[in-house]
């Protein structure tokens, strides 16, 4: 008869496991994947499957090499990382780029540091950072809006049987705005730009706004299920709203409105699925607020003033470095203790 493990505090009413949490996260990603697939086509599903297969292969291989059990293959953490990679990389990127990203995420960022729970950085964001630094051109090729390639042609692009055609791809709305603003000849305002191009939808990039809304729905589901707490995403989106509102109020012709920033690029995915990583993020409630707030602020600054199409990956990696320090300084007071660990003075006399 199996003996139940001794239960210690905190006395959670529901037994949680890594596997259960990862399953919930996958479930929460599902609306995003469905909307994204409707927008792009089945190429995204192929990328997700490709990333998942290689994530399991690398994870298994390195668990074996490190002399650990293969049980970690079942916990789903590698699969969540793989899904995030497939969702953050351009859907028509060549197959080897996805595999390389998965390799850096699983092998370099996770297994070399000691496997699940030991990685100081978010593996999926390491994959993104490595690939955008090494292959900036490929990582900026997003499928042009309104262009629906048949599935067979998408496969040819991904698996490299046909040459990569620039006409297939375009910059993301974020990138297009930044490029236009940096050109000296640009004299109009963002409003004109938004009207003149078919790239934009009602409140953000056309199509993308629905994908990011689906991420938002999935994220709210995660908060509702208590898989993540509200602090990180609220602080992330809040700080991004505040800084973009300030910039927008100062000069609406040069800066996009907050709604556009919240619903374009990887803001929603970053706020709910990446910044909330329990391993590489902060763990204390106050720390989560600082972590999310810092990540949102940095993401805005990098995506608006930096050289990269989006700033989510770099902002979260920078905050990952700070997370241990933030955690040290935001330890909540233990019951019956004052902040800082001193015993509360009571006079029982």
């Amino acid at each position: 008869m199996p003996i139940a493990p001794p239960i210690s505090s905190p006395y959670l009413h529901a037994e949680t496991s890594v596997r259960r949490i990862m399953n919930q996260v996958m479930l929460a990603l599902l609306p995003g994947i469905v909307v994204y697939t409707a927008l792009i086509g089945l190429a995204l599903i192929v990328q997700v499957l490709l990333a998942c297969c290689f994530a399991l292969i690398f994870e298994g291989l390195f668990q074996k090499l490190r002399g650990r059990s293969l049980a970690s293959l079942q916990d789903g953490s590698a699969l969540v990382t793989a899904c995030l990679i497939a969702l953050t990389f351009p859907p028509l990127s060549p197959w080897w780029l996805t595999v390389l990203g998965v390799f850096f995420a699983i092998v370099v960022a996770k297994q070399l540091y000691g496997g699940l729970g030991q990685n100081p950085f978010n593996p999926a964001m390491i994959a993104f950072a490595v690939c955008i630094v090494a292959f900036p051109a490929l990582m900026s090729q997003w499928p042009a809006q309104g262009l629906h390639l048949p599935f067979s042609q998408q496969m040819e692009v991904i698996f490299g049987f046909s040459p990569r055609i620039d006409a297939l791809t375009a910059a993301t709305p974020l990138d297009a705005i930044k490029t236009a603003l940096k050109m000296d000849s640009f004299t109009g305002s963002i409003q004109d730009l938004l009207k003149s191009q078919s790239l934009y939808g009602t409140f953000a990039g056309r199509g993308w706004e629905w994908v990011t809304t689906a991420y938002l729905v999935g994220g709210l589901f995660l908060i509702f299920r208590r898989v993540i707490t509200w602090q990180t995403p609220v602080a992330f989106l809040g700080s991004m709203t505040v800084i973009s509102l300030i910039c927008w109020l100062i000069d609406p012709a040069r800066f996009s409105d907050p709604l556009f920033h919240l619903f374009s690029g990887g803001a929603m995915l970053g706020a709910f699925f990446i910044a909330t990583d329990p391993v590489s993020g902060c763990t204390t409630p106050a720390g989560k607020l600082i972590f999310g707030g810092g990540a949102g602020l940095l993401a805005y600054l990098i995506r608006v003033f930096g050289g990269f199409p989006d700033g989510i990956a770099f902002s979260i990696l920078i905050m990952n470095i700070c997370a241990p320090l933030i955690d040290v300084y935001t330890q909540p007071a233990i019951f019956a203790m004052q902040q800082g660990g001193k015993k509360k003075e009571r006079d029982h006399a």
């Binding site: 370099v108 070399l112 490595v130 630094v133 090494a134 292959f135 490929l138």
Partner: peptide, 18 residues
């Protein structure tokens, strides 16, 4: 060969040295 810029940058040197 598309080239792998990371290996030529300092982080690539750190990873390789490790």
């Amino acid at each position: 060969y598309p080239g792998f810029l990371l290996a030529a940058l300092p982080p690539g040197a750190f990873i390789m040295l490790g």
